[in-house]
Nucleic acid binder design. Structure first.
Lengths: 74, 74
DNA sequence: GTGTGACTAGAAGTCCGTG
DNA sequence: GCACGGACTTCTAGTCACA
């Protein structure tokens, strides 16, 4: 976790999403967030709020702890 | 992670801060955030952004993964 | 040393569209 | 299915005076 944590976060979301074989649109629908916003997050352009982090984790059906339980955030 | 994740988050910050024996003011100084803002976070009144989550984790000298590595977020 | 309400600027987030 | 932009509304960031 150094500079550009947001891009790391976006990549993590993207990987998890693709691992489930769903589109940004589908993830957005599940999390009740706009598809273009999901796109921005995955590209590291959005400074996501905690509530939305929780929404996205839920949509990906994992816990917040699991979401960050990777070397990039350790 | 059920209702009021923000309050869980605030409590977590508070516990970590107190475990280090530092004041909100000191934590704020380390994270370069206002002490009243830290206060609001600990009380679950602020929907913190990811960038600030990272700043606070750094100020507490732990990783983001560790920050969420508790039952409340699992 | 902390809780709280209020405030403004600027970022978050939505909704329309394009290639 | 995704990146990206413009215009728009809603919310957070950041700070203050006061208790």
């Amino acid at each position: 976790m150094h500079q550009d944590a947001l891009q790391q976060f976006g990549l993590r979301i993207k990987q998890l999403r693709q691992a489930q074989g769903i589109s940004q649109e589908e993830l957005g629908a599940r999390a009740q967030l706009d598809r273009t916003y999901i796109s921005g997050i995955e590209r590291g352009k959005r400074n996501v709020s905690f509530k939305n982090i929780v929404l996205i984790a839920d949509a990906l059906q994992i816990s917040v702890a699991e979401l960050f339980n990777v070397p990039e955030f350790s």
